[in-house]
């Protein structure tokens, strides 16, 4: 900030730039955005560069990356092309991460909003249920859920969604507890607004920014969980995900580390992208930090 900022600043962000510009100005958000763009580009353009079935055995097994330009990232122990596998994994990871987070955000917002708004007994019951989910280790619960039903993309999405909502519920509840007592909510009530409308049009839009920021972190966590499930063989047997590749390559780790290493790097980059973006969003959406 320059010295001119010493004159009395306007009370609110009246001249602050838009959200996108603020995000671009935030170093971690910008890096996260670039990394995410790379992963997204890989998932979108990849199928055009390396078409085909990731399960198909196309070349000699355990070709190192760069050994044969027909398989630029090499092949695994079954002779399956790793580039095709990584592209498939990117699509699966992003899809599962997004849909599972959508489920988690919906359940979490519903629980948190009702508990925070109504308080009292409703809140007590909803928060005890939330705590029940929080006390069970999330990954173990996800494993159980997927194992009980048949492993598929749908069950993975549902299981990850179901284990990920409690944090969102807590956050939304805290937001609602504060916002419920704000004067503009009272003012809306003096206008004759009904309770559902009050929640949907007055409180929820004000409660959402931190939820959006946190959901980015939830996506990152969902992607890790999916990879871990697939690594354990609890992924969809018809879908090649990053976890599947790592799981398949783990016995040849000493001879061909790249089989595990490449999807591992992909997971790290993707999770890092979402984490950085989430952190940046959190700062950008927080009005108290906008002047820093």
């Amino acid at each position: 900030m320059s010295g001119i900022a010493l004159t009395a600043a306007p009370p609110a962000a009246s001249d602050s730039p838009g959200l996108l510009r603020r995000l671009a100005g935030n170093r971690s958000a910008a890096l996260g955005g670039v990394l995410l763009a790379l992963v997204l580009g890989f998932a979108v353009v990849g199928p055009l560069l390396w078409p085909g079935d990731p399960w198909e055995m196309v070349a000699a097994p355990m070709l190192w990356p760069g050994e044969d330009m027909a398989n630029p990232l090499g092949t695994d122990v079954m002779g399956r092309d790793l580039a095709t596998g990584l592209v498939s994994g990117a699509r699966v990871s992003l899809l599962i991460g997004l849909v599972a987070t959508l489920i988690a955000a919906t359940i979490g917002t519903l629980f948190g909003a009702l508990g925070g708004f109504y308080g009292g007994r409703t809140d007590a019951v909803l928060m005890r249920v939330t705590e029940l989910f929080q006390t069970v280790p999330t990954f173990v619960l996800a494993v159980v859920l997927v194992a009980v039903f048949r492993p598929s993309v749908t069950t993975a999405v549902l299981a990850i969604g179901i284990v990920s909502w409690p944090a969102t519920a807590r956050l939304v509840r805290a937001q609602f507890l504060v916002l419920r007592d704000r004067e503009f909510v009272l003012a809306a009530e003096t206008l004759g607004m009904s309770t559902p409308r009050l929640i949907l049009t007055q409180i929820l839009p004000n409660a959402l920014p931190p939820v959006i920021a946190m959901s980015t972190l939830t996506i990152a966590h969902a992607i890790q969980t999916e990879a871990a499930l697939s690594f354990l063989g609890l992924g969809d047997p018809n879908v090649m995900s990053w976890g599947t590749i790592i799981g398949g390559g783990r016995e040849q780790l000493t001879e061909a580390w790249y089989v595990c290493g490449l999807p591992g790097i992909a997971i790290i980059v993707t999770v890092l992208a979402f984490n950085l973006l989430g952190e940046g969003l959190n700062d950008a959406l927080n009005p108290h930090l906008q002047r820093r």
Binding site: A12, T190, L191, G192
Partner: peptide
């Protein structure tokens, strides 16, 4: 009661910044 609130009796507050919804 809701049919009266805002329709036949309306209210204005001391601090408009906190009585207006900041995101609308």
């Amino acid at each position: 009661l809701r049919a009266v609130r805002g329709n036949r009796i309306a209210m204005i507050f001391q601090e408009p910044l906190s009585a207006l919804n900041p995101v609308q």
